[in-house]
Simulated assay, not measured.
Amino acid sequence: MLMIADTLLVAGALGAGFYCYVLSRRLRRFTDLEKGVGGAVAVLSAQVDDLTKTLNQAQSTAKSSVDRLDDVSARAEAAARHLELLVASLHDLPDPSDRKPVENPFFVRRAPDAETHQ
């Protein structure tokens, strides 16, 4: 009886050893840097670095665009104030409907003489 128990114990130990060997091979393939999850993690890490660089560039570009837009906006506001001032100064001009209508709207430098056309 003792012999059967020892045989079963050795068989169980060999089965557990074989199971551990299979698991270690699977785990090694799973964490392989080229094909397994380790490779995927490495690729994702590189992509995160690239995205971080791109994001930093986009932020700096956006900041410079905002600065330029602020400058242009300030110039536009100054021009608008100047135009408002010009329009307000036009209110001081006399009303054009109060003027007499012009008979001949064309400008003539001198009237034609009979003496000059000889």
Rank of each mutant, 00 (worst) to 15 (best):
L9P: 00
A42R: 12
R26Q: 09
M1F: 11
F30S: 14
V66A: 11
F106D: 12
G15A: 15
V41H: 10
S45N: 10
L93E: 15
A114P: 06
G36A: 02
D98F: 02
A74N: 13
A88C: 05
D32N: 15
V41N: 08
G39F: 00
C20G: 11
F106T: 08
D70S: 09
L8C: 11
V22C: 04
R68K: 13
R109N: 11
D50Q: 12
Q47A: 15
H82Q: 08
G17S: 09
V22I: 07
A58K: 05
L51K: 00
L93Q: 10
G39S: 03
A62H: 09
V87H: 08
S24K: 06
F106S: 03
A62L: 15
G36R: 04
S45Y: 06
A76P: 01
D49N: 13
L23H: 04
L33D: 15
V37Q: 08
V10I: 10
E34G: 05
L69G: 02
R68N: 06
T54I: 02
Q47T: 07
A80I: 02
V48R: 08
K63L: 13
Y19D: 04
S60E: 15
L90Q: 13
A114W: 07
N104T: 01
D92T: 11
V41M: 12
V43M: 05
A114I: 13
A76E: 07
A16Y: 03
L51I: 02
H117Y: 14
R81W: 01
L85H: 12
E77Y: 05
S89A: 10
C20N: 06
G39Y: 03
A76W: 07
A5T: 14
D50A: 13
D49T: 13
V72T: 05
S65V: 09
R25Y: 03
L55D: 00
Y21M: 03
A62M: 11
D6E: 15
K35Y: 10
V41G: 03
S64Q: 13
L23Q: 06
A40Y: 11
L44Y: 03
M3A: 07
A5W: 12
A76R: 04
D49H: 11
K63A: 15
T61I: 07
G39I: 02
R26H: 05
L85Q: 14
S73G: 14
K35A: 09
R68Q: 10
D113Q: 08
I4R: 09
M3C: 03
V102N: 00
S65R: 06
N56H: 04
V37W: 09
V22R: 06
V48P: 00
